Amino acid sequence: MKTTLMLTGLFCLLWCTACSEKEEEKEEVTKYLVTAPLKKDTTITKEYVCQIRSIRHIELRAQQRGYIQGIFVDEGQMVKQGQLMFQIMPQLYEAEVQKAEAEAKFASIEYKNTKRLADSNIVAPNELAMVNAKWDKAKAELALAQVHLGFTKIKAPFSGIMDHFQVRSGSLVDEGDLLTTLSDNSKMWVYFNVPEAEYLDFKTKTQNSNMSKVNLVMANHETFGHPGIVETIEADFNNETGNIAFRATFPNPKGLLRHGETGNIQMVVPLKNAIIIPQKATFEVLEKKYVYVVGKDNVVRSREINIAAEMPDLYIVKDGLAADERILLEGIRKVHDNEKIHFDYQDPHKVLANLKVYTE
């Protein structure tokens, strides 16, 4: 009886041990998640550092020498076209006008008297011509004196915003001295540099009107409320950088943008038949991007890929990967090159949907 019980117990022990070994073998089989690239039409947003400039930004300089007698505007003030801004002491130029008026009046009387004598053949016609030339000279000098007097009043050549003053009331200024600057901010010119390859893409796709529309991200990381339009491209490339300057025009109805600001231009670029993969399916070695490609023999092999563009959680592959190949999605740090794996395949549409990224 004891022998029977011992045999029965030994059999149970062996059976349990065998079951345990089978369970351990099952636990040792690790499955990885595999997917494929998604090939579809999409758009990407490219960003460029930009400089914001007023559509008109000029320096106001003195055109006459003299003392600043009056300043009729304030720094940062909005002025209208023709509004008086500075007055240079005019007495000297007023006296010059009065002198020129007197000389012109004298020349006029002299001409009239000589003409009467010429009509009576008392003086030669050449003398009349000389007196007439003298009167013309006097009138020209009067006009010039009036222009100089007009230069003592500096008026706004267009409506815009004043910058800070370079002079104060009572300052002595020479001809050409800087008084202030004036900016017309009704529209803004935004300049940004584009690499040669992207310039060529832009030129071949500008039939699509959306390609010429751009957005401006301001320094506070907020998007400006009005889109701009790319209107001008400079003639020459910069040989040192390989870039060419674009200029976009933005409306500025509320005057939020000011001359000298910086920001980033965002341009939406369409891509046809783009190869899209999740970023988490890649790894980096010496600043190069790689994926594990799963072959038909279920063996993973690392392969370098080139990235055409980056989106949130996604890469658009330029080359190195075909749309019909399978790539390792999870467990990248656990496998080795040329290792055979067990895996579950997940449709790329489902993978991208789980990333919560819009690729339309």
Rank of each mutant, 00 (worst) to 15 (best):
N264W: 02
L271C: 08
H259Q: 05
R247S: 08
E261W: 02
K213M: 06
I229T: 11
F192N: 01
K272L: 15
V217Q: 07
K296T: 15
N220V: 15
K296W: 06
Y292F: 14
Q279H: 11
M211A: 08
A245R: 02
N243T: 10
V230D: 04
W189C: 09
K288C: 12
I277L: 09
R247W: 00
L257C: 01
F250Y: 00
V214Y: 00
E261S: 09
V194P: 00
N243W: 00
Q266Y: 06
L257R: 01
E222Y: 01
D297C: 03
Y292C: 05
H226G: 06
P195A: 10
K205V: 09
I244C: 03
A248G: 07
M267E: 05
P195R: 05
H221V: 04
K280R: 14
A274E: 15
V293Y: 00
V194N: 01
P227C: 05
N252G: 08
I277D: 04
G263I: 01
E240L: 09
K254R: 07
P227H: 02
F202L: 09
G228C: 03
M188I: 14
D236K: 07
N238I: 13
E261I: 03
V194R: 01
G263F: 05
T223A: 08
M188L: 09
V285L: 10
P270S: 15
F283P: 01
P227Q: 04
V294R: 01
K280S: 12
K296D: 15
N193W: 01
H221W: 03
D236H: 06
P227E: 13
G260P: 04
A235D: 12
T206W: 02
D297H: 03
E261C: 10
P227A: 08
P227R: 04
E234L: 11
M211P: 06
Q207E: 11
K296G: 14
A219C: 03
T282A: 12
A281L: 10
R247C: 06
E240A: 10
H226K: 10
V294S: 01
M218C: 13
Y191F: 03
I233F: 04
R258V: 10
F246Q: 00
W189R: 06
K205N: 14
L200R: 13
D236V: 06
W189E: 07
E287C: 05
K289V: 11
K289N: 09
M267F: 12
E240N: 04
A248Y: 00
N208I: 15
A245Y: 02
D201Y: 14
Y191P: 08
Y290Q: 11
Y292I: 12
K272Q: 10
K288L: 07
M267N: 13
L286K: 08
A245W: 00
K272M: 11
K254Q: 10
